[in-house]
Nucleic acid binder design. Structure first.
Lengths: 332, 332
DNA sequence: TTGAAAGCGCTAACAG
DNA sequence: CTGTTAGCGCTTTCAA
């Protein structure tokens, strides 16, 4: 591989001139340099550049699991934004494990100019540790207490409230909630939404109606079975995320529960196949791609220094999409 | 940030010793170095290391779209394997655009030790161009003609053949095929599978029964409508990938076609919600994660120099999972 | 086993 | 506008 020196020699100039030419500055010998570069098929070394400048033209993205369609969409939104800005993205899956998240952040930090992370828990040590460094960070989907980073969230409470309102309007009074881990932002916020909204409607507070899952499919399945076994079964259930919704749906099917007549169900997050289900699934939808590009935009503003305020929370809207999985409860 | 010199000074040794210590070599002053590192919270610069050694400890992965569950699973498989080997992964979405793919490869190549790519087309110029470099590459899901790279594919022909056989056994004779682009490996191979398998059963060759889509949802939708409008409608359809299957399913639903009585359908690739559909979807499944980890393994063998043979094609098995969307055709 | 020193490829003062 | 030069932080000969 030719280096800058080779180009300089071939063009009969100094490396400084080549460097300037590369940087887009005016150089008298531009033509000679251009053809030398052409002839030698020269491309500058990203690494040498990074070492010298301290810049990497890369950002790191840490999500729990790229296999979750929500995070896939989020990452896609980030990636597109990154390419536009001339940055590469280095991806890491934390797998809902704080240890793994920490390890990822440690290695990524050395080769990126900024980080977008969806932290596992709100008391996230690895994020807190980051605060000591000067690397720009934006938190997405989930935030961390007592950090000063910007975060991009969605209106979790509003979404769940809309879902509860919808069910109450239909005449439900026994509404259950399959929650995510209360240690995570979306877990906690959606749970709060449920508690507040049901209270606002003066629904009986029935502790068995709230089951804490772990955002994975199996826990949605298990939770739904548990609800179904209750003496005083709920007539409707709201599920706090996409994967658990899939689990709940599978349980419903295996249990042979008629939806929505025996049980109405609303899932958090749109699913590519929501319309294909019988009945089509009512969901609380949000723009995963938007959430990604929004957080990337914030990060680049900070990297480029055009943004100095911090600790700001951007809350993106969600939308209740009513389809067929919710209806009036059948009288017992 | 402390550097190796600071550590050397603090420990009263040379930078060479620190470097050796870091590399795991025996050093008399190990203890002193260790505590200096501890005290200064030193971590070596990945970049400086790369510049010196020419190694990056990172691999690049280029896929059409991470948002496609198949590629998400694939990338996950790669990522896990990469972490085990101590490598980061830099992700790129080519969006089915050769130009974008080329651009991605150009930038990635400068910061990775190897590349795993799912090339858009079989006559892929950017891949061919790569051959001139010495960067290890493995092709996944799709291959490129006249390259010498290893590739990890699945048994496309076998999968489609199993699907056709299954339909024929059920009594179908009018079997349609919604194909992917014939310029891509899976597009072409699955198409070949269809042609060969239908011919083997002496089915009438009906050109209108084959529609070439672009692997995206809309094209599956459009293709299915086109098939449905045929005078001599097929009684069954095989769809060449997951996204087009979703499109076809949506069309079926909007057209109010009864599945499987009016139309049997088989999709290529498992779908997370296949069992949730009414009827559950019969699919040709493969291990996306496996395909990823297999290709990563191959790449690392090559990076580490333990593998020298090349141009090998690994063909992973697929499995026909019969569910409810296929049945005996109703007599006209 | 150790240290001195060269150098990976580039950028950015600085001086001209 | 241009060239000279130092140096980013590390690894790796080479000599001791």
């Amino acid at each position: 591989m030719a280096n800058i020196q080779d180009v300089a020699d071939a063009a009969g100039v100094s490396t400084a001139s080549v460097s300037r030419f590369l940087a887009g500055q005016k150089v008298r010998t531009a033509d000679a340099i251009r053809s030398a570069i052409e002839a030698l098929d020269y491309t500058p070394s990203t690494i040498a550049r990074s070492l010298k400048t301290g810049r990497h033209n890369a950002i790191g993205v840490v999500v729990p699991d790229i296999t979750n369609p929500f995070f896939a969409g989020l990452v896609r939104g980030i990636e597109d934004q990154a390419r536009v800005n001339g940055y590469d993205v280095i991806l890491g899956n934390s797998d809902e494990s704080p240890t793994q998240e920490e390890a990822l952040i440690q290695t990524l930090i050395k080769r990126v100019d900024g980080l977008i992370v969806a932290p596992i828990i709100e008391e996230d040590q690895s994020i807190l540790a980051l605060s000591k460094t000067s690397v720009p960070v934006v938190l997405v989907d989930r935030s961390v207490t007592s950090t000063n980073y910007d975060s991009v969230l969605v209106d979790n409470i509003g979404g769940i409230t809309a879902a509860v309102d919808h069910l109450v309007e239909l005449g439900h009074t026994r509404i259950a909630f399959i929650s995510g881990p209360l240690t995570s932002t979306p877990g906690r916020a959606r749970h709060t939404g449920y508690v507040v909204a049901t209270a606002a409607h003066n629904l009986d507070h029935c502790p068995e109606y709230v089951i804490e899952g772990d955002f994975r499919e199996e826990s949605g399945d298990a939770a739904l079975r548990q609800l179904w076994n209750l003496d005083n079964r709920p007539t409707a259930v709201i599920v706090a995320n996409n994967l658990m919704t899939i689990g709940a749906l599978k349980a419903l099917r295996e249990l042979d529960v008629a939806v929505p007549t025996q049980m109405s169900i609303i899932g958090f997050d749109e699913l590519s196949f929501a319309e294909l289900l019988q009945p089509p699934l009512t969901v609380i939808a949000r723009g995963d791609n938007d959430q990604g590009s929004r957080s990337a935009t914030l990060l680049f503003e900070r990297i480029q220094g055009t943004r100095t305020r911090s600790g700001e929370v951007t809350t993106l809207p969600v939308e209740l999409i009513v389809r067929g999985s919710t209806s009036t409860p059948t009288k017992p």
